[in-house]
Simulated assay, not measured.
Amino acid sequence: MSATQVPGPGANVAAHRKEHGLSQVALARRAGVSVSLLSKIEVGDRALTQGVGAALARAMNLTLDELLGSAPEVNLNELNWAIRRFDIPGEPPQNPEKLQGEVDELNQLRWDTELSKVLQRLPGVLTRVTSHAHLTGQSKAWGLVADVYGVIYWLAARHRWMHLAELATLKQRMAAERADPISAIVAARDDAGTFLNSGDFSGGLAIIDHAIVQAESTLSGRERAFGLGVLHLRGLTLAGRLRDKQTTNKHIEAALRMAEEVSEEMAEHGMQFGPEQTATHVISTASDMEQHRRAVETGESLIQAGMTLPANRVAPVYMNLGRSQLALGDQDGTLESLEKAWATSPEMAAVHPTSLELTRVLVSKHKRSNERLTRIAERAGIAL
Results as ranks from 00 to 15, higher is better:
109 L>A: 06
148 V>I: 04
153 Y>A: 00
143 G>C: 08
124 G>I: 09
151 V>Q: 04
122 L>V: 05
103 V>R: 03
129 V>R: 11
149 Y>T: 03
112 D>Y: 14
109 L>K: 06
105 E>L: 08
113 T>G: 04
94 Q>H: 09
150 G>H: 11
138 Q>V: 11
150 G>C: 07
117 K>E: 07
139 S>K: 07
132 H>S: 06
136 T>V: 06
120 Q>A: 06
110 R>G: 12
103 V>K: 14
114 E>P: 10
114 E>D: 05
101 G>E: 09
134 H>Q: 06
150 G>M: 15
146 A>R: 05
118 V>W: 02
125 V>W: 04
148 V>R: 02
121 R>E: 13
120 Q>H: 05
126 L>W: 02
130 T>S: 11
144 L>R: 14
140 K>S: 06
123 P>Y: 14
136 T>L: 08
132 H>G: 07
121 R>N: 13
120 Q>K: 10
124 G>N: 10
115 L>W: 08
136 T>N: 13
124 G>V: 15
137 G>M: 08
104 D>E: 09
128 R>G: 13
147 D>C: 09
107 N>W: 13
94 Q>S: 10
94 Q>L: 14
138 Q>G: 03
149 Y>I: 11
106 L>G: 04
119 L>R: 07
154 W>E: 00
117 K>N: 12
141 A>C: 01
117 K>G: 04
100 Q>P: 12
125 V>Y: 09
121 R>W: 14
123 P>N: 07
96 P>C: 03
153 Y>E: 01
104 D>I: 07
155 L>K: 01
130 T>F: 12
138 Q>I: 06
97 E>D: 12
142 W>V: 08
132 H>M: 15
100 Q>M: 07
154 W>D: 01
110 R>N: 11
149 Y>E: 01
133 A>G: 05
141 A>E: 01
103 V>S: 10
126 L>Y: 02
110 R>H: 07
148 V>D: 01
112 D>C: 03
152 I>L: 01
144 L>P: 00
142 W>N: 03
112 D>N: 11
137 G>H: 08
112 D>V: 03
135 L>R: 05
103 V>I: 13
124 G>H: 08
135 L>F: 09
145 V>N: 02
117 K>L: 12
103 V>G: 13
150 G>L: 13
113 T>D: 09
146 A>M: 14
151 V>W: 01
146 A>T: 07
105 E>S: 15
152 I>W: 00
124 G>E: 13
152 I>A: 00
109 L>Y: 01
122 L>D: 10
106 L>E: 04
108 Q>F: 03
141 A>H: 05
136 T>P: 14
97 E>K: 05
109 L>N: 03
111 W>Y: 05
123 P>D: 07
151 V>P: 03
98 K>G: 12
113 T>S: 14
128 R>V: 14
96 P>N: 02
122 L>T: 15
106 L>A: 02
153 Y>M: 01
101 G>R: 07
